[in-house]
Design a protein around this nucleic acid. Structure first.
Lengths: 130, 130
DNA sequence: AGCCAGTTGACAATCATTGTCATTATGGCG
DNA sequence: CGCCATAATGACAATGATTGTCAACTGGCT
């Protein structure tokens, strides 16, 4: 035992969650995803869905969004830093990149001598079809 | 009876919550505020604290911030639209205005034909003294 | 003073999320 | 190829913030 410190295993349940996220668009809650998995016949426990999502989020393979009301939504996302424009009626999501905002945030932080900067930014609105 | 559609009353409890927020800096949870009120001898129910905070937030007299972990924090804030630079170690908060960001958000939204835009933005970092 | 509607507060209910722990399954090794 | 340590699972209980309920109360007006 030397290099094997990780010990991450490949399981049916983990694949199922990843696969589902891969073919979905938009944000979904953990409970939502669990219901979908059950609906397609996959037998996965709710606890496992939560744990898997947490693992994926830690690995930055999915994005998490906090919603007022103590609910968090998960979404498979493209690589790199970006933000979301979300329709508050139908939930449709558009990924937007904002280099200007990143620079602005870093400038502001630098002005106040803050280090190790991160930020959260979500834009809400009503999309054309709603 | 003509303009009196609101019917908002001045109560001891409401004043207590407002007064507490007025002399506090930084963000605090509802439970936190309730504990402080009790500590100084004010007799206010937890439910009332929640309702008062909600009312104040609706009136835009305080700001609300969502925290991972299903907790929301409240803070008395200056008028007008602004954002926060928060130290993730000591919780110190700096209000920052970002006209550039507002304009950027509106431009992005317009490009995708989204209407009725709002947005949330928080910047986290470690402040110089931490 | 007395009335009415807004307000309060103790408590139960809700709801997403996390902890527990016995059982199961994975993957490398002999 | 079968075994074993250990990661992973899942049913269920527990947590913890927030919201609903409803009877009692009170501010402000007539």
């Amino acid at each position: 035992m030397n290099g094997g410190a990780t010990g991450v295993r490949n399981t049916r349940q983990r694949s199922a969650v990843s696969a589902l996220l891969a073919e979905l668009d938009g944000f979904h809650s953990a409970q939502d995803l669990h219901a979908m998995l059950r609906a397609r016949g996959e037998r996965v426990g709710l606890t496992t869905v939560y744990r898997t999502l947490q693992t994926l989020a830690d690995a930055s393979e999915i994005d998490v969004m906090q919603l007022p009301g103590a609910e968090q939504l998960y979404r498979r996302c493209s690589d790199g830093h970006h933000h979301h424009l979300v329709c508050r009626a139908c939930g449709r999501t558009v990924e937007v990149a904002g280099p200007a905002v990143e620079r602005w945030a870093e400038k502001i932080a630098a002005e106040h001598a803050f280090r190790d900067i991160s930020h959260t930014l979500e834009i809400f609105g009503t999309c054309p079809t709603c």
